[in-house]
């Protein structure tokens, strides 16, 4: 167990934890956009910047992103030093200029005392904060259908060549993980569309409800020992069947 000091309070950290986790455990709130429990930390949004120092560093401190800095024993962390607060404000001010109409960004900025951006508002407002969650979750699933394209100011999330992505399985993970819900999609019993690609749905052989795309079923077929028959029924029907089986068994055991 490592012991750290966060904003003056002693906090214990589990082995292998990153600072962000420990800071939040200590009840200190820090804004983040690119952090997600299911994914490796990435360090892109720069909102979770903190100052770290040690007693032996003689007053010298360095600024790090807490999502990626290991919670080492003896670290003294400040989330509210003047330069940390100022830098975070600059970052939020810039994000507000990029996404002037996005409620989440507006709220984060307002929480930090920024009502209006000091910079030139984006002439083509977007809701995408380029946190990279969508592309990273797509990579994590093993599909990699979308990626960021272009460098610098022209960076955006897109499928290859801005065409319907051949590898996309229509799982909607990108749309669901997006903190500003800016990836459009439609889904119904017969059809799903996302990234300009249309998907046919698989229907449950029991209840008839559409619950997965054909591409999803094909993608998972054979992976991690999942048999093809697994997708004959939807999760709900599977649960019902299991519950019935369980109650039969337990009824048998009680006899």
């Amino acid at each position: 167990m490592n012991t750290l000091i966060v904003n003056g309070r002693h906090v214990k950290a589990r082995e292998g934890a990153m600072l962000l986790e420990v800071i939040r455990q200590a009840g200190v709130s820090l804004p983040t956009l690119c952090d997600h429990a299911a994914l490796e930390p990435w360090g892109g949004c720069r909102l979770c910047l903190v100052d770290v120092t040690r007693n032996e560093w003689d007053g010298w401190a360095k600024m790090v992103v807490s999502c990626m800095f290991p919670a080492e024993d003896g670290l003294i962390v400040r989330t509210d030093s003047p330069r940390v607060v100022e830098t975070r404000k600059v970052v939020l001010d810039l994000l507000l200029a990029r996404c002037p109409d996005t409620p989440l960004v507006q709220k984060l900025a307002r929480d930090h005392g920024i009502e209006q951006t000091s910079y030139q508002p984006n002439p083509e407002p977007t809701d995408c904060v380029l946190c990279g969650l969508c592309t990273r979750v797509c990579d994590h699933i093993g599909v990699s259908a979308i990626a960021t394209v272009n460098r610098g100011a022209g960076r955006e999330v897109a499928p290859p060549f801005h065409e319907a992505p051949p590898d996309c399985i229509g799982c909607l993970a990108c749309a669901e993980i997006c903190p500003t819900s800016c990836i459009p999609f439609t889904t119904s019993d017969s059809k799903r569309t996302i990234w300009g690609k249309a998907f046919e749905m698989v229907r449950c052989t029991q209840c008839g409800r559409a619950f997965i795309t054909k591409e999803q079923a094909a993608f998972y077929d054979g992976r991690n020992g999942v048999p093809a028959s697994y997708f004959d029924t939807c999760d709900e029907c599977k649960r019902r069947a299991q519950a019935q089986q369980f109650s039969r068994l337990s009824a048998g055991a009680g006899r």
Binding site: V91, L94, A153, R155
Partner: peptide, 17 residues
């Protein structure tokens, strides 16, 4: 502004502004 990779907010948006 062309050569920044655009991964982190301060560099990407800061150069632009």
């Amino acid at each position: 502004v062309e050569e920044s990779c655009g991964k982190c907010t301060p560099c990407r948006e800061g150069l632009k502004q």
